[in-house]
Nucleic acid binder design. Structure first.
Length: 318
DNA sequence: AGTATCCTGGAA
DNA sequence: TTCCAGGATACT
C-alpha cells in the first residue's frame, strides 16, 4: 500500500482540493469496503485532512471522521467539476447515429490516468464521494472553490473506509507507534524497542505499533542505506547502527515525500491528480534483485522475510 | 515464529 | 500454471 510518503502525498493533495467543501452524496459500489452509515456524513463539511501512520483521516463537521486505509492498492482520485466531461455527450452523439444508448454515467477525464485508465468510475472504483464547493460567494467558482468527485479505487479490495466519531478515534489509531517525523523518533526510543526483541530488524521497522508508516519499500531502502542486514536480530544492533538506521529511515521517507511517493507497479498507488509518483526511479534496493549494488557493485538478491520480498546486498549489509 | 487469508491481475 | 505484488490479522 501507500506507505507514509504516499499517504502524506495524498493528504496534502486532498487538503488543497476539498477542505472547506461539503459531502453532498456518497455512492458505495462495494459494500464491504465501507464501514459505517453513510447517512452520518451526508451534508458534513470537510474541516481538515490528517494522517496517522498509513491511515488518512478526513475530519468532518459534527464530530465525525472518515478513516481510510489504502492497504496495497488503494487510490484516491479527485476530479473537479470543470474537468469532468460527461460521457453522456458522447452517448447522445452515438444515439443520434442510431447506436444503442446506455445512459452511461462514466466520465472521461481531462487527462489520462496512467494506471487507472481514462474513465471513472473504473472497475476498481468502490466508493464515490460527490463534493460540493462552498456556498457561492463574491469569489465565484474559481478552481480551488469548485465541487467535484472523489473516487476511492482499490483493485485488490483490501482497503477500507470507516466512519468514526471523535470519541472513538483513539480505539482506531491509539495503538499506532511513533511518527518518524516527530520528536519521539529518537535513538533512545529505537534502542528501547530494539533491545526488547530478537525479531529481524526489518519486521520491527514495519511493526505499526512501534513505528507508524513504514512498509516494505521504505524498510528495504532504509536498511540498505544503513548497511544493515534485514534479518539481523533487532537486539543485536549496535548503537552506531541504530543511529545510522534512524538517519537512513528519515532520509528515504524524506526522498519518498519529495518525489510524491512511489508508483512501482500498475493499478497501485497514484496521486489524487491521477499522476504517478516518481520515487520508484530512485530505488536502490527494493525490487532491484539481479541489479548491481550502487554502493559496492555486488549483486542485489531477493529473499523472503515474514512472507515479504526482501532485497539485500550481501556485500554491504551486515 | 511461521503460514493462511482477504482479492485481482501482470509477468515469468 | 505458478509466483508475485505497497498490508495486517487470525490461526497453528
Amino acid at each position: 500500500m501507500p506507505e507514509l510518503p504516499e499517504v502524506e502525498t495524498i493528504r496534502k493533495s486532498l487538503q488543497e482540493a476539498i477542505v472547506g467543501k461539503k459531502i453532498k452524496d456518497v455512492t458505495i459500489r462495494l459494500a464491504k469496503v465501507f464501514h459505517g452509515d453513510k447517512r452520518e456524513i451526508l451534508g458534513k463539511t470537510i474541516e481538515a485532512i490528517e494522517r496517522r501512520g498509513k491511515i488518512l483521516i478526513i475530519k468532518l463537521s459534527g464530530d465525525k471522521n472518515l478513516l481510510i486505509h489504502f492497504k496495497l492498492t488503494g487510490q484516491m482520485v479527485w476530479i473537479e467539476k470543470s474537468k469532468i466531461i460527461l460521457r453522456q455527450a458522447q452517448d447522445d452523439a452515438e444515439q443520434s447515429r442510431g447506436i444503442k444508448n446506455q445512459k452511461s454515467k462514466l466520465i472521461t477525464l481531462g487527462h489520462p490516468i496512467p494506471f487507472a485508465g481514462t474513465e471513472l468510475p473504473a472497475k476498481t472504483t468502490h466508493v464515490i464521494f460527490e463534493i460540493d464547493g462552498p456556498p457561492s460567494s463574491a469569489y465565484g467558482e474559481t478552481s480551488a472553490r469548485q465541487g467535484g468527485k472523489l473516487f476511492f479505487n482499490d483493485l485488490r479490495q483490501f482497503g477500507w473506509i470507516k466512519v468514526i466519531e471523535n470519541r472513538n478515534l483513539k480505539l482506531e489509531i491509539g495503538k499506532l507507534g511513533v511518527e518518524p517525523f516527530s520528536s519521539e523518533f529518537t535513538v533512545d526510543y529505537l534502542k528501547q524497542i530494539f533491545l526488547k526483541t530478537s525479531k529481524p530488524i526489518k519486521l520491527v521497522l514495519m511493526d505499526q505499533e512501534k513505528i507508524a508508516g513504514i512498509g516494505n519499500i521504505y524498510a528495504n531502502e532504509a536498511l540498505f542505506e544503513a548497511g544493515i542486514k534485514p534479518d539481523k536480530p533487532a537486539k543485536k544492533l549496535r548503537n552506531e547502527e541504530i543511529e545510522k538506521l534512524r538517519e537512513a529511515t528519515l532520509r528515504v521517507l524524506g526522498e519518498g515525500l519529495r518525489y510524491g511517493g512511489s508508483s512501482a507497479s500498475d493499478e497501485a498507488y497514484i496521486k489524487p491528480t491521477g499522476e504517478p509518483g516518481s520515487y520508484q526511479e530512485h530505488f536502490r534496493a527494493y525490487q532491484q534483485d539481479g541489479q548491481k549494488c550502487p554502493k559496492c557493485g555486488g549483486m542485489i538478491k531477493r529473499i523472503a522475510l515474514g512472507g515479504r520480498g526482501t532485497f539485500i546486498c550481501t556485500g554491504c549489509q551486515r
